[in-house]
Design a protein around this nucleic acid. Structure first.
Lengths: 146, 146
DNA sequence: GTTAGTGCAAATGATTTGCACCGAA
DNA sequence: TTCGGTGCAAATCATTTGCACTAAC
């Protein structure tokens, strides 16, 4: 059973239909696993394979995929939202260059340690976000103003 | 020298003028130290003291304050931006309730440990974000749909 | 056949901008 | 006096929504 099949099954289990463009969007997200994409990038890549794709459909599908926790949506510094497929077998975080927006993976996750130290019984944790920002070599050289 | 004075000095040092409403916005941010505010909340609270305040002015000032690193701007789950004054003597992070949006402080910061483990010499780190999400007691009881 | 999904165009809502006037230095 | 700051109204831009039509099950 391929990953794509597993996801499609999960969609069915949640009562969603498997339309051609939904499958295409999934392909795009899978192809860019471990990589954030903007809605526009997803739109453009989907359009390549399925020409009549429409922006609303992209957004509606991204919302569904977020709800069933198959993708992560992040907002870097208030810029437009970025989406990433969740690989369940490799939880990770990101280093994000403020110059060019490129991201890199970090394998380490501080969550457990923090939950230990916190000891906060009256709160149910569901989710967390950890991101490092800075400038990559080439952006540093360009002496990014600011 | 009060905190407010220090900030005003910093603004001057950067070549910014000290207008009445800029001071008022600062007061509002200081009064809500350790607390995220939306642009609208800042607008409303500023308006209380300085009636003719305008939204564009709020945004323009928030942008300036962000640039000289006096406030943090965050986007929780793509909702409208939230701003918080940076207290330099108490770096912290937040627990955020997805039900009611209330935030709580965490004193612990995983940054140093991670930088140790990362060993990433070709990247200049400037900034980071760490946030825990979940549901607080009362939101849990309301069996928040999701 | 029923219900969810889609395309389109229009609406929304936060944030930004152009421009003429105002006020701090 | 000279810039930076402000108010206002209009613009922008990502995202959302209403509606009639279409396709998956």
């Amino acid at each position: 059973m391929t990953i794509q099949n597993q996801i499609e099954q999960k969609l069915k289990d949640h009562g969603y239909k498997l339309t051609l463009q939904r499958k295409t969007i999934l392909e795009v997200l899978l192809k860019n696993k471990n990589h954030f994409l903007s809605a526009e990038e997803i739109y453009l890549q989907t359009k390549e394979k399925y020409a009549q794709t429409n922006f609303s459909t992209i957004y509606r599908n991204l919302e569904i995929l977020e709800n069933i926790e198959m993708i992560h949506k992040i907002n870097i510094h208030g810029a437009t939202s970025q989406y990433e497929f969740i690989s369940h077998n490799s939880h990770h975080h990101h280093i994000i260059c403020k110059g060019c927006g490129k991201t890199e993976l970090i394998d380490f996750c501080p969550l457990e340690e923090i939950l230990d130290k916190l000891n906060h019984p009256d709160f149910t944790f569901t989710d967390h976000k950890f991101e490092l920002y800075g400038y990559c070599t080439s952006c540093k050289e360009k002496t990014c103003k600011k």
